[in-house]
Amino acid sequence: MNSTILYSALGWLDLFGIAVFAISGALVAARNRQTLVTFGFFALVTGVGGGTVRDLLIGAPVFWVQDARVPILCLGIALLVWLTPVKFWRPAAVDWFDAIGLAAYSVFGAAKAMQLGIDPVPAAIMGIITASVGGVIRDLISGEPSIIIRPELYVTAGALAASVFVLLVQTGVQGFVAALIAFTAGFALRALAIVKGLSLPAYRGAEEKE
């Protein structure tokens, strides 16, 4: 695999994932009737949080510090959501934008890690971190139940997208095709979780015998 070519081919996923996560962050601020400053903060934290942690872990320059387009994009989205009448946003909009960002960013995070020579399993984990940490920070700040402790599938969908991408690339599938398949798989699983309430079995512990 020529990792440099692969990473370049998947670059579109970066801004796409950032944008939809920024929208989800701004929508949480809207749902809580926050100020424009809070809109911008939520959009930025949600958009770049996971990628920031990923870059720190793999020793890469923190992407949004090196590229002014990223914070400008997040703040622009925050302003756009602020100006948009609330009737255009359905209550479930946060979940759906989050689902799109989750699938896209899982793939891109794994791709960036592989481009820097990270082994396949840690690379897939970097994809999961990229996709989920921003939402975790957003929920902690807003006081909402964290995405990682909700019963329906969330991190699992990100893990599926990242793992499928890494596996396909390792078997020689072209980068864009692998990304498209992995994105579709991750988004489909998360969509099913949103619509059908799919969840993994919860820990039941050592139940008392009757």
Rank of each mutant, 00 (worst) to 15 (best):
Ile58Thr: 03
Gly59Leu: 06
Gly59Asn: 10
Gly59Tyr: 03
Ala60Pro: 01
Ala60Lys: 02
Pro61Lys: 03
Trp64Thr: 00
Gln66His: 14
Asp67Ala: 12
Asp67Met: 09
Ala68Glu: 14
Ala68Val: 15
Arg69Ile: 12
Arg69Gly: 15
Val70Glu: 01
Val70Met: 01
Ile72Ser: 04
Leu73Lys: 06
Cys74Trp: 05
Cys74Val: 09
Leu75Ala: 11
Gly76Cys: 04
Ile77His: 02
Ala78Trp: 00
Leu79Glu: 01
Leu80Pro: 05
Val81Asn: 07
Val81Asp: 06
Val81Met: 08
Val81Cys: 12
Trp82Gln: 10
Leu83Glu: 07
Leu83Asp: 01
Thr84His: 11
Val86Pro: 06
Val86Met: 13
Lys87Leu: 10
Lys87Ile: 12
Phe88Ser: 09
Phe88Trp: 14
Phe88Cys: 10
Arg90Pro: 05
Pro91Phe: 03
Ala92Thr: 14
Ala92Pro: 08
Ala93Trp: 10
Ala93Ser: 15
Val94Asn: 03
Asp95Leu: 13
Trp96Cys: 03
Trp96Lys: 00
Trp96Thr: 01
Phe97Leu: 15
Ala99Gly: 07
Ala99Glu: 05
Ile100Thr: 15
Ile100Tyr: 06
Ile100His: 08
Gly101Glu: 03
Leu102Phe: 08
Leu102Ala: 12
Ala103Val: 13
Ala104Tyr: 00
Tyr105Lys: 08
Ser106Thr: 01
Ser106His: 04
Ser106Lys: 04
Val107Phe: 02
Val107Trp: 08
Ala110Phe: 04
Ala110Tyr: 02
Ala111Ser: 14
Ala111Thr: 08
Lys112Ala: 07
Lys112Leu: 13
Ala113Ile: 01
Met114Trp: 12
Met114Lys: 11
Met114Ala: 15
Gly117Trp: 08
Ile118Thr: 12
Ile118Cys: 07
Pro120Ile: 02
Pro120Ala: 00
Pro120Cys: 00
Pro120Gly: 00
Val121Met: 13
Pro122Asn: 12
Pro122Arg: 08
Ala124Trp: 00
Ala124Val: 00
Ile125Asp: 08
Ile125Gln: 03
Met126Tyr: 09
Ile128His: 01
Thr130Tyr: 07
Ala131Leu: 04
Gly134His: 05
Gly135Glu: 03
Gly135Lys: 11
Val136Phe: 15
Val136Glu: 09
Ile137Trp: 10
Arg138Lys: 09
Leu140Tyr: 10
Leu140Cys: 09
Leu140Ser: 10
Ile141Leu: 15
Ile141Cys: 09
Ile141Asn: 05
Ser142Phe: 14
Ser142Glu: 07
Ser142Cys: 11
Gly143Phe: 08
Gly143Pro: 09
Pro145Cys: 11
Pro145Asn: 12
Pro145Ile: 01
Pro145Trp: 07
Ile147Pro: 05
Ile149Leu: 14
Ile149Arg: 13
Arg150Gly: 02
Pro151Asp: 06
Pro151Arg: 12
Glu152Asp: 14
Glu152Cys: 05
Leu153His: 04
Tyr154Met: 03
Val155Arg: 06
Val155Ser: 03
Thr156Trp: 00
Gly158Ser: 14
Gly158His: 06
Ala161Ile: 06
Ala161Phe: 00
